[in-house]
Design a protein around this nucleic acid. Structure first.
Length: 268
DNA sequence: CAATCGTCCTGCGGGC
DNA sequence: TGCCCGCAGGACGATT
């Protein structure tokens, strides 16, 4: 369940581990549908790894790049010596010239790789109509964005990638809890004070989750090393039983088909 | 226009 | 014991 903090963690670790390595071979195992474009075009040196929303962009020195999305169950694991760490869920192996490699594991196969020319990235991103990055957003911009979504419910809006990009099911509900706001409230019902609390909660939670290298729940998300992230110990509502503050048993509702936890005592 | 549902997949666990 | 079903939940397209 990689959201912004998980993808940001992996991006930072990729920058340290594989930047300037040269891809010498790409092996695709039962993932043809999810691998778009010609793998031969990404044989080259990786000059930069970027993140936009929940996607990673691997930039090469040969005028090609590839976008990679982990979706629900994708993992990127670095291996010093291929084939160590390969599992039955390894669908793409990027071999580097020095004998190391990068494994793309994805047991539910929702993720994808898309190869394109460097010049096509701008259009590719534009077509996704992504909203701004939440960590690069001022309070004034946040307020302005909310004006367009006045009828929508708060949690859905936070998860809407066209509104802001990067929040998913975990951090959207954690942000609502920290702000003390019911996830089912409409945007138009928010006072300025509540809007401010929500804005602060989003920033604090995302930054803290990045600091702890993401949330590993069900051990699906892992860091580049294969180690779990450690933010799960700070989760206040997601998959929790009772509220830490008031001890009330948390409620679970379905919003857009997604389980949403909240405290009926602390969230108004 | 917003919400909902089905879809892409796989595996686990609850219930009968 | 075994089987069916619901659930997990990122994003998108079709429908209400």
């Amino acid at each position: 369940m990689p959201e912004l903090p998980e993808v940001e963690t992996i991006k930072n670790q990729l920058q340290q581990k594989i930047r300037n390595k040269t891809i010498s071979k790409v092996e695709i195992v039962d993932y043809q549908k999810n691998f778009q474009g010609d793998p031969k075009n990404i044989l080259g040196r990786i000059v930069e790894i970027k993140r936009r929303a929940k996607q990673l962009i691997f930039c090469l020195d040969n005028n090609y790049l590839f976008a990679l999305h982990l979706k629900l169950t994708g993992q990127l694991v670095y291996s010093k010596k291929i084939p160590e760490k390969i599992t039955k869920n390894t669908h793409v192996v990027f071999y580097f010239q020095d004998g190391s490699g990068l494994l793309f594991n994805d047991y539910r196969k929702f993720g994808f790789v898309k190869v394109m020319k460097t010049a096509d990235l701008e259009n590719y991103i534009k077509n996704q109509k992504l909203g701004p990055e939440p960590l690069e957003l001022s309070f004034e911009q946040f307020q302005q964005l909310l004006q367009k979504k006045r009828k929508s419910r708060i949690k859905q809006t936070l998860m809407d990638q066209a509104f802001i990009s990067g929040l998913g099911n975990i951090y959207a509900q954690e942000a609502c809890y920290q702000a003390g706001i019911l996830p089912i409230r409409t945007i138009s019902s928010l006072s300025t004070k509540e809007t401010e609390r929500l804005y602060q909660a989003i920033k604090e939670i995302l930054n803290s989750a990045i600091e702890y290298k993401g949330t590993s729940f069900d051990t699906i998300y892992v860091q580049l090393s294969g180690q779990p992230g450690r933010y799960d110990q700070f989760l206040k509502v997601y998959h929790q039983e009772a509220c830490l503050k008031c001890k009330t048993k948390l409620k679970i509702v379905k919003l857009n088909g997604r389980s949403t936890y909240y405290c009926p005592g602390c969230q108004k």
